[in-house]
Computed example of a mutant assay.
Amino acid sequence: MTIRWQGVFPAVTTKLKPDCSLDAGAIRAGLERLIARGVNGVLMMGMVGENAQLSPQEKQEVLRIALDTVKGRVPVLSGVAETSTERAAAFARDAHALGVDGLMVFPGLTYKSDDDETVAFYRAVAQASPLPILLYNNPRGYGVDLTPDVVARLLEEPSIVALKEESYDTTRVTDLITRFGDRLAVVCGVDDLVVESAALGVRCWVSGMANAVPRESVDLLALAAAGDFDKARELYRVLTPLYHLDTVAKLVQHIKLAEHLIDGTAETVKPPRLPLSGAERERTIAIVRETQAGLRRLGYDY
């Protein structure tokens, strides 16, 4: 399937049973809920999908479940989060063999590569399969910054076609669009910068908190992309406290708790993560409840 880099692509949470094994039924139900609410693609096993905590066998199973459930209705992308070039390239080949539509490739985990090492890593992964690649630029999280100069070198690989921008610097969006035009799709990777990114020309958003509020997130990006900023700001102000939770270290726990409160799914996370507790948990519950109240005032069914 050709990927059109438009609309909301949730970074899908990996649903787990109480013993932390995969919950295939819940994964399927979650994907059906997202598609029914209008998302344009699904990204399995990004950071939000706890990629680094899954075994190789679990990763393969998550992709099989997703592909069998989605059945071509929207593109299915997979995160590639490995500690070595060899394993990242092998995963890219395996994902292609399974039938995945595209890859979001993290830099090599645990090592802060310099520019030459970063370029070599991404080139090796790009050459391992023909799948289109969404680069993942999150210098705060991984210590590797895909600057426009680095991106220019990477675009020598034809399968590198998009970049998830998570540097928290909105000037980077304009710099990338100005320099690369249609050659590179710039994708918003920060939930609480989506309206700002859309105002600068971004039309695709990989969102964590869209797991909890998919319809509202789809509506928000559509309003901003259409230039209806009065309505977009009204909705954004309601959603932003919830979206802020996508930008902190425990984002997976916050997102899974929000899903649990809104949709009833389990909030189980893979260790070393632990579920939220105490005042931290109560604060997130309060934010979710206030968000629901605000959405009701805007006419959403909560």
Rank of each mutant, 00 (worst) to 15 (best):
residue 219 D to N: 12
residue 105 V to W: 02
residue 132 P to K: 06
residue 148 P to R: 04
residue 2 T to H: 13
residue 118 T to L: 15
residue 230 D to R: 11
residue 295 L to M: 09
residue 250 K to R: 14
residue 42 V to S: 03
residue 149 D to F: 12
residue 109 L to R: 04
residue 237 R to P: 00
residue 248 V to Y: 12
residue 110 T to R: 11
residue 32 E to G: 01
residue 297 R to K: 10
residue 169 D to W: 04
residue 297 R to G: 07
residue 263 D to L: 12
residue 301 D to C: 04
residue 189 G to W: 02
residue 94 D to R: 13
residue 42 V to T: 10
residue 261 L to E: 06
residue 88 A to D: 10
residue 112 K to N: 14
residue 248 V to A: 09
residue 293 A to H: 11
residue 289 R to M: 11
residue 166 E to R: 03
residue 95 A to N: 06
residue 38 G to E: 07
residue 237 R to H: 13
residue 54 L to G: 04
residue 285 I to K: 14
residue 126 A to M: 09
residue 159 S to D: 09
residue 186 V to D: 06
residue 245 L to V: 08
residue 151 V to N: 09
residue 44 M to A: 12
residue 292 Q to Y: 08
residue 106 F to D: 03
residue 232 A to E: 09
residue 234 E to K: 10
residue 267 E to M: 13
residue 263 D to Y: 12
residue 127 Q to A: 15
residue 177 I to W: 00
residue 150 V to T: 12
residue 71 K to H: 08
residue 269 V to S: 02
residue 84 S to A: 14
residue 159 S to A: 14
residue 19 D to T: 01
residue 221 L to A: 01
residue 184 L to P: 04
residue 41 G to R: 04
residue 198 A to G: 07
residue 174 T to V: 08
residue 203 R to G: 01
residue 263 D to I: 01
residue 141 G to V: 10
residue 104 M to W: 08
residue 11 A to V: 11
residue 96 H to C: 15
residue 36 A to P: 00
residue 251 L to I: 05
residue 232 A to V: 08
residue 20 C to H: 15
residue 71 K to M: 08
residue 136 Y to L: 05
residue 218 V to N: 01
residue 246 D to L: 06
residue 275 P to N: 12
residue 115 D to T: 13
residue 49 G to H: 05
residue 143 G to M: 10
residue 270 K to L: 15
residue 39 V to L: 09
residue 169 D to G: 02
residue 300 Y to M: 01
residue 47 M to G: 09
residue 126 A to I: 15
residue 117 E to P: 04
residue 210 A to Q: 04
residue 76 V to I: 14
residue 142 Y to R: 06
residue 277 S to C: 08
residue 12 V to T: 12
residue 102 G to T: 12
residue 156 E to C: 07
residue 72 G to P: 06
residue 167 S to N: 14
residue 7 G to W: 05
residue 191 D to K: 10
residue 212 A to T: 03
residue 105 V to G: 04
residue 281 R to N: 11
residue 81 A to S: 15
residue 256 K to Q: 10
residue 220 L to Y: 05
residue 107 P to M: 04
residue 124 A to F: 09
residue 241 P to V: 09
residue 83 T to M: 14
residue 58 E to Y: 07
residue 230 D to Y: 07
residue 246 D to W: 00
residue 74 V to D: 06
residue 200 L to T: 00
residue 122 Y to K: 07
residue 169 D to S: 00
residue 244 H to A: 02
residue 187 V to G: 01
residue 179 R to L: 13
residue 263 D to E: 13
